[in-house]
Design a protein around this nucleic acid. Structure first.
Lengths: 217, 217
DNA sequence: TGTATACTTGTTGTGTACAAGAGGTATTGT
DNA sequence: ACAATACCTCTTGTACACAACAAGTATACA
């Protein structure tokens, strides 16, 4: 992986884990010094992140991590649900043993946590689950879009996670990964898509409940 | 629109109209001189085009316009068809009079051609039709993806257009735009999506016929 | 005291020189 | 004649200096 690429992944991870919460100013100079390169490769990374909707760049003013308004959030989730249906319909990829192993490793690590309260740790593991799921999407364009949309919404979930029922959220993820592993062992990508669709749908419901009550009271 | 932005649109248009056919080398220096800027903004544009899959950049070797292999073509068309269904289902946008007027202008211009053989002219008009259609997609993320996928496939159609039945292709586009205008006048975005879906599906059939015969004989 | 204005500071955008790398060509040795 | 090698030229990547611009701050004036 090129240096540029790893810088991109690092910054994207920081945004998704709220190390750079919405509104954070990302100075090119500061980042350049931290990563030990000049502004040039940093600028390339930031422009890509802008294209993907994670930061906004304004000349003279600076670069800021974007927030996610409710309208956008609903749009992206609606689209992600539909894309999950497509994941099952369009040319499902073959399942390699690598993916299953990574998933089982993840499942083990999560169970080892034993439900201990650690939002960032859980988010980190879920990011890995996302990465391990991507190869299951056979359609390359669909895979790219799914990846892009994922990073526009995880941080919202992580943001409200402290106000949700931790035990429920934790168990849901354990269940999701466990069910996905079962489906993978039977080479059933279609069912993987259905499982993820169901869980995302449930999560959306919980988010709606919370956001609704947060607005009204 | 910023200078960078217009350069991006210009190069993308050239790729879609086959002024830069697949395999063309795009030198940063040459482009910089043509547009009267330094390599810096050109590089930003080329990297965006690479991200969108229209060029490949390799250090030391150069930047080349990508080709579209059959697998990728089928994937993208399959996805585009699905996204069209979503266009109808997900938050259809309101229809402004501007869009209808642009569409009617387009329809007029095409009819004025009177079926005269002009593949590039037709492609140019179809690009405008695409641009005029975009605002009808209410979901911002879906709009972005649709735009991106469109430019990965138009040039394939334009490439084989000389080998297809010109009168059929011409008439199909006239019909499509005409039908879309009718639907727009009745504020029926859902029907617009259905019309475009039907026409894309038909086009895909004609492409398959041609590509099949081109392979076998 | 309030307000308009100039300025100071910090940011991103651009231009340019140089480094790193790829690929073809000439050259040289056998 | 042929093959290996050095090199020559072109490409993209990086670093850095400077321009363009935004925003807050101090200052001068009414």
């Amino acid at each position: 992986m090129s240096a540029s690429e790893s810088i991109y992944h690092e910054i994207r991870e920081r945004i998704s884990l709220l190390h750079y919460p919405p509104g954070t100013a990302l100075g090119e100079k500061v980042l350049a010094e931290e990563f030990g390169v000049s502004r040039t490769p940093i600028r390339r990374v930031l422009h890509r992140l802008e294209f993907e909707g994670l930061v906004t760049i304004s000349r003279g003013a600076g670069t800021m991590v974007t927030g996610v308004d409710l309208k956008r959030l609903k749009e992206v989730y609606a689209l992600r649900l539909k894309l999950l249906e497509l994941m099952g319909e369009l040319a499902p990829a073959r399942i390699g043993s690598t993916e299953i192993e990574e998933m089982e490793a993840l499942h083990g690590e999560i169970v080892d946590l034993g439900g201990a309260y650690d939002p960032e740790g859980l988010a980190r593991l879920y990011n890995r689950f996302h990465r391990a799921s991507l190869p299951l999407i056979g359609n390359a364009a669909l895979r790219q879009f799914s990846d892009q949309l994922y990073y526009q919404t995880v941080r919202v979930w992580l943001q409200v996670l402290p106000d949700l029922n931790w035990d429920v959220e934790f168990q849901m993820i354990v269940d999701e990964i466990g069910a996905v592993i079962e489906a993978l062992k039977e080479n059933d990508v279609q069912r993987v898509a259905e499982i993820r669709h169901k869980h995302m749908s449930l999560l959306l419901g919980r988010l709606n409940d919370y956001l609704g009550s947060a607005i009204s009271g």
